[in-house]
Design a protein around this nucleic acid. Structure first.
Lengths: 238, 238
DNA sequence: AACGCTACCAAGCAAGCGCTTGGTTTTCAA
DNA sequence: TTGAAAACCAAGCGCTTGCTTGGTAGCGTT
């Protein structure tokens, strides 16, 4: 279950990165990431039928919601009939569960790489925030928002399957937070939950294509708000 | 549309309040609030059939979700048959829309009273946070969470109906925030959205009946985190 | 007493749902 | 070339859904 996956971030991903440590990864590094996950058996080949179905499901569940998406929709998206789906998945809920698992694995790996590429502790946290925002708004991890929105659609037993993978993701956050806010702070889990909640909720109001507030700007604003700034930078009215 | 409702908070609600300005209201003040809203025609009489249906729908939508709740469920909850519902509402979506409107009106009025009862600007903001948390976790405003969770289930035209009422609610937040953080801060709308997002997300992890972290404690933690504290209270490692 | 109105019941319709079944095509290794 | 497994189609089953229809009981007004 808790397979010990040693991800090869040693020299593969930090080659093409220049000075912008908190920047988004290139398309090449993304493909490299997918190849790595594919080789380690963590995700399904997107070229296979099963992979096509999972990608289509992720997109449809994100757009229309789980219950509003029919198995006929998913099947039609890849050009097969609805009945044929059940040669790949045992049920509709199974599709949702598998989608969530692969999305979680991909998002975790992506964040791990982003943290690795950043140098300072502050930039690592910035990378996390930016990573999360990009995922939430569909710019990097298709289907990421269903992890929040469709959680209730999953039965308790299947929730447990995804929850195991989610632990690792949240651990990455905790480490990044503690490196900036200090390991002795006892409210780190609380801060992490509030921060992730604030980020998740941007899904309802922030539009990344807007010119007024770009995603990197939003990320920096969030960083400034959650991390106590040194008084030299902070304009105080006292 | 934007009816100017002059709520009589002059002397009705601040009589029974002692020193705990950020505390929850008593059952009496809640009933008074309902009576006021009922008299001003903002909500339906909970004793009427329509009111019973709206309350049942709010509870069921919150528990099971909109699509998972059938009109037969709602009808059975008040002891009538499913077909009879459509003498009170035009459609199932109409039920959701009306529920959201009344929930929004009630939550707005409740927050207005809480703000009024608090004295200092800091305590007014604390009251807002506590109000929101109590609403989110079903302790004060049944059906409040569907405003977030089931927003997508509403068509755009009906969303507009609820959105108009929501504006007022968010205005209350902005005023409370600006009174504490300063009116000159230009990121107030952003802070409000991040704060509301963080609070909304507590729905997924915080359990108000837990002994380890009570709701008032959580509210205070959130307040401390979002409002820059004076350096005397803030333990700095520098 | 007759009326009209509201609220409700009993029954069911049309549509859509997840999923099954039996049979056909495709794939690919031996 | 052959055989078997995997992948898929065509059809539809059983069920649930939101909603409709025709009729009726109750109630207050005139």
């Amino acid at each position: 279950m808790t397979a010990k996956v040693k991800f090869k971030t040693n020299g593969s991903f930090n080659t093409k990165v220049g000075k912008s440590n908190t920047g988004a990864e290139t398309a090449e590094t993304k493909n490299l990431l997918i190849a790595e996950l594919l080789a380690s058996g963590q995700i399904t080949d997107p070229a296979s039928r099963r992979g096509q179905l999972l990608n289509a499901a992720a997109r449809l569940f994100e757009q229309k919601g789980y219950t509003a998406t029919t198995v006929r929709d998913i099947a039609a998206a890849v050009g097969i009939l609805s009945g044929s789906i059940f040669h790949h998945f045992s049920s509709k809920e199974d599709i949702l569960c598998c989608t969530m698992q692969e999305v979680t694995r991909f998002a975790s790996a992506r964040m791990r790489v982003a943290i690795f590429q950043a140098s300072s502790a502050e930039d690592k946290l910035r990378a996390c925030i930016r990573c999360e925002l990009e995922a939430i708004h569909g710019l990097a991890v298709p289907g990421f928002s269903i992890l929040v929105n469709e959680w209730r659609s999953l039965s308790a037993s299947r929730q447990a399957l995804v929850l195991g993978l989610r632990d690792h993701y949240e651990q990455l956050w905790l480490e990044s937070l503690s490196a900036v806010l200090g390991t002795q702070r006892r409210d780190l889990p609380l801060v992490r939950r509030l921060l992730l909640g604030a980020l998740a909720h941007t899904h309802n109001w922030f539009k990344p294509e807007g010119k007024e507030l770009t995603l990197p700007q939003l990320a920096e604003q969030v960083f400034v708000l959650f991390v106590p700034q040194p008084p030299s930078r902070q304009p105080t009215s006292l």
